[in-house]
Structure formats: structure tokens, C-alpha cells
């Protein structure tokens, strides 16, 4: 039995040890906003925030997250009330197909919380572990840059 907090809600579940945190979020909790791309830690689509740090949820077993606090894309905002970063993604056309977007957003949130992001170089380095096959990187960088400059949180 594991017990963990996801977006402020406490869940208790019986899980098989081999269940990844990504599959746990999607299949056990129905939080399908976290996307599973490569399942080998390369693409970054499954990035979530675990105890305050962005991590690959495909490279973490749910049992390892026992007692942890998780934030997923569902915790950012809602359709009617987008978070500042989500709103900025919308305004800057920072997504095309949207598959990589949950990972881009969660990485962006981690970057915005921890780093000054004084240069676009820092944003690019921070995003280097997230792949977008629509090649939409320029717009993602601009969206994060705009949130840094607005200075009103992630």
C-alpha cells in the first residue's frame, strides 16, 4: 500500500512494484494529462514535479513515491482559469499537437521557481531534456521568457 499526495489530494493505493509513477498517475488515478512518450527517460513528456523537483515519471516507480508530494499538469490551472505559464503558452503558440506540452509546462514551472532565467540560453538549457517533434521550441522559449518578464509567478 502506498500513500501519496497528488495536486493536494491524498491517495492510497495497492500497487505492483513495477508500475511506473507515470502509469500510476494515468491508469490508477485517471490523471491522463501526464503523457508517456518514450518510457526511457529521453523525451520528457512525462515530467512531473516530485517533492519540488521536476523528474521523469517514467523513470520512477510508484512505490518509490510513497509519501511524496506530486504536482502534475492537472494541478496548474483549468480550462477557464489557466495558470500564468499555460496562458503564456496559449498566447505565444507554444504548442502544435500538444503531446509534449505537459512535460514542457512542468519543466517550465520548475525552471521559473528556481532560476532567475536571465538569458534565453538558461531557458534553452533547462528545456534541453524535453523533445517536441513539431519543432516548436522557439515559441516555448518565448512563452517562458514572457512569464519571467511579467514577474507574477508560474
Amino acid at each position: 500500500m502506498i500513500k501519496l499526495t497528488v495536486n493536494g489530494i491524498v491517495y492510497e493505493r495497492e500497487v505492483e512494484p513495477r508500475l511506473s509513477l507515470a502509469d500510476f498517475l494515468r491508469h490508477e488515478l485517471g490523471l491522463t494529462g501526464t503523457h508517456v512518450g518514450c518510457e526511457q527517460g529521453v523525451c520528457g513528456a512525462c515530467t512531473v514535479i516530485l517533492n519540488g523537483d521536476s523528474v521523469r515519471s517514467c523513470l520512477c516507480f510508484a512505490v518509490q513515491a510513497d509519501g511524496a508530494e506530486i504536482e502534475t499538469v492537472e494541478g496548474l490551472g483549468s480550462i477557464d482559469n489557466l495558470s500564468p505559464l499555460q496562458k503564456s503558452f496559449q498566447e505565444h503558440h507554444a504548442l502544435q499537437c500538444g503531446f509534449c506540452t505537459p512535460g514542457m509546462l512542468m519543466t517550465g514551472v520548475d525552471l521559473l521557481r528556481k532560476y532567475p532565467l536571465a538569458t534565453d540560453e538558461e531557458i534553452r538549457e533547462g528545456l534541453s531534456g524535453n523533445l517536441c517533434r513539431c519543432t516548436g521550441y522557439q515559441h516555448v522559449v518565448r512563452a517562458i521568457r514572457a512569464v519571467v518578464e511579467a514577474g507574477n509567478g508560474d
Binding site: 527517460g41 520528457g44 515530467t47 516530485l50 523537483d53 521536476s54 523528474v55 521523469r56 523513470l59 520512477c60 519543466t107 520548475d110 525552471l111 533547462g126 534541453s128 531534456g129 524535453n130
Partner: peptide
């Protein structure tokens, strides 16, 4: 060494 999310874990 790898990327931010990998270095975090």
C-alpha cells in the same frame, strides 16, 4: 550530465 529532470533524481 544529462538534463535537469534526470539530474534531479
Amino acid at each position: 550530465v544529462a538534463h535537469l529532470a534526470i539530474r534531479n533524481k
